[in-house]
Design a protein around this nucleic acid. Sequence first.
DNA 1: AAATTTCCTTACTTAGTAGTAAGTAAGTAT
DNA 2: ATACTTACTTACTACTAAGTAAGGAAATTT
Lengths: 184, 184
Amino acid sequence: MRPNPGDAHLDTRTKILSLADDLVRKKGFNAFSYKDISDSLAIKPAAIHYYFPTKEDLGVAILRQEIERFERNGERWQHESPVTQLQNLIGLFRVYWDRGQICLMGSLCPDKNTLPEKMQVQLEKLCGLILDWVADILEQGTFKQGKEFAPVIMATLMSSVILARVQGAGVFNTIIAQLQKDLI
Amino acid sequence: MRPNPGDAHLDTRTKILSLADDLVRKKGFNAFSYKDISDSLAIKPAAIHYYFPTKEDLGVAILRQEIERFERNGERWQHESPVTQLQNLIGLFRVYWDRGQICLMGSLCPDKNTLPEKMQVQLEKLCGLILDWVADILEQGTFKQGKEFAPVIMATLMSSVILARVQGAGVFNTIIAQLQKDLI
DNA sequence: AAATTTCCTTACTTAGTAGTAAGTAAGTAT
DNA sequence: ATACTTACTTACTACTAAGTAAGGAAATTT
């Protein structure tokens, strides 16, 4: 009994998006298929095309969702201190690691040349947003580094989880510790 | 007139390996196919199986080649100062950027979960080698950071080229400049 | 009650993928 | 001259991918 029409629709759509997001972070955009998703949801692969006609549509939706999520985080955190906000960002990457994921940027940026055009656009938007956000935080607070350090922070966080995938949790903790030492 | 038997063999094999290496760095291991290589060499896709029976064999060969290349670099550089050696390493990443490539680690580590087993083993070996090498350099020279900073350097270099792929050359230069400022 | 919309399944096409098996022309060794 | 190897091509199998078109059951609207 659904409260209003289109609810099952939204429900399945949300589940597809959630699974696809997880698969991108675990296997990469080119390495997962509609079948991976449909198997988990006990539906047929063709059903996914009902919600996302093409894989490009699905990829764009994943990126748009991440952009929204990032903007909501920014709003939720805006009354906390710059140091806390940056710690919150670092905390996100620890969650990725715990889940066996990497961040969307870390997954999609290396594959940029092979991604559909609309995904490339959204990916650029996401990267720009995050870099600007980190730069703002660096300017607002009193850190050991200025706003030109923002790309270094992003690069370091991105790779910490990627490197840890191969070298283990120790590398992740070392990188985060060194980054914090250099900043705060 | 070949100097010794098997020369044409080696020649084609070398070309395949070189093209595959380039493709991995530009498109990723899962996104290139034997046809991409055979088209460039004006041979048939099946001919590649003559030299590399499976794609796993090809991937392992790419990684082995990179390991050898890295070890040779280390030997060639060993009489230079630690600072110069680290600058040489950074120089490699600038070359990748100029070629539209990313480093092998940056390409393969995110895809680790989808790689054939023997490739995963070689990838771990390559990562370990590079991390140890950087740690040694940090110990030998007088840098602002100790050997525990090695993973940060690798993470930063790796991501500098990956981020630049989406955000442009400015990000690459900024990251490298900040890294050098923090080290030397 | 009838008509319509929603959310799927069934069955399919098209286009690629890695990989294999058989054959062949040219060169090499005996 | 014969046997064998090298370095492929041709033609194929088996599989997987994204995507489509038609249809149908169930819920919702009229």
